[in-house]
Nucleic acid binder design. Sequence first.
DNA 1: GTCTCCCTACCATATAGTAGGTAGGTGAGC
DNA 2: GCTCACCTACCTACTATATGGTAGGGAGAC
Lengths: 193, 193
Amino acid sequence: METSTTREEILSVTRNLIQTRSYLGFSFQDVADQVGIRKPSLYHHFPTKEALGVEVLHEATDAFRRWAATTSPTAARKLSAYFDLYRWDLRAGSSMCPAGALAPGWDCIEPKLRTAVRSLRDEQVQWLSRVFSADPRSRRRAGELAAFVFAACQGALLSARMTGAVEDFDTVIAQVRAAIRAKRFNLVPKEKS
Amino acid sequence: METSTTREEILSVTRNLIQTRSYLGFSFQDVADQVGIRKPSLYHHFPTKEALGVEVLHEATDAFRRWAATTSPTAARKLSAYFDLYRWDLRAGSSMCPAGALAPGWDCIEPKLRTAVRSLRDEQVQWLSRVFSADPRSRRRAGELAAFVFAACQGALLSARMTGAVEDFDTVIAQVRAAIRAKRFNLVPKEKS
DNA sequence: GTCTCCCTACCATATAGTAGGTAGGTGAGC
DNA sequence: GCTCACCTACCTACTATATGGTAGGGAGAC
């Protein structure tokens, strides 16, 4: 069991690098340095940088799937938990979602990376869509609302990254919650303010 | 007048590269190739890659300022024009905003670039804030709404970039419009659907 | 003459990736 | 118990190429 630790360590370090410096902003040397092994040793675990990047995205997609399978029962709580995922797990203000981190460099990343990015997006949008479908008041617009919430979270993350302030993320999300509440979908618990 | 053309051409090509490949995804060689001159000639116009990047962002900020000074009189139309700016000028689905393109690589870009990114963001958020302040119904939440609209547009751009479909941008923006309308701010003209 | 704009030729460094080797562990056959 | 083959996980040393950037020169305009 201790044997797989290095591989997991590499994946963890790489994910962190992607989230803070984007895919184009880190090198195999950076990964090696942070893991504490030499660069060529990385090739024992991953054949190319592309493969490592793809694996990080797949792991993130799987992790989201697992997370989605074990969260709160009501739609309102599910949505709140989703916002918290962005706020805490993705460290809004100082980090990006792995998918969002790759999008700006789209024209110079390999096809397999693009596919993996889309998978991570799809997983989230589909889950959100199911959440909105569960409530009859939002069922008709479930797909559109899902796309909206995903984009808004990504944008809030991007915007907060520019200022470096989590508060800016919170401000945007508060508006997203208010928007959904205003439509009387009743999915977002009223915040105290 | 023809003398400044090369400089402008460099800026235009670079802006396009940043929007499609991000700051870390292009090289001086790429710029030189597209402009049609040799790489060292670029250094006659810009001392470093950083300086070129900063100038692109400053130009974008100025361009937005000029655009903002000459748009429609009513708040509703101003907002519509803003969405159109993202949809058409930024070519939603196949390109990013220059500011949004730099944000994911935040931890490995120089301080001057960061400042320039923030300026472009601030310019937009402040303008949006003035737009919302102009209407008594949105005055109280002008700042929050401005931050929300900016983030939502950036997110819509990012999300559409992943799928490559402008329609995904449109879907998100339709929800943003609906959200503002639902709050009865009356700022967004009803769409036919 | 000198200033603008571009050139060829070059440099140090960093990049992804390779070649080839070593230390230690595991299991099979005897 | 012992050897032998094979494996994993890492290493040093290296290659080709691309990167941002420099030195210095040439042709034309004022």
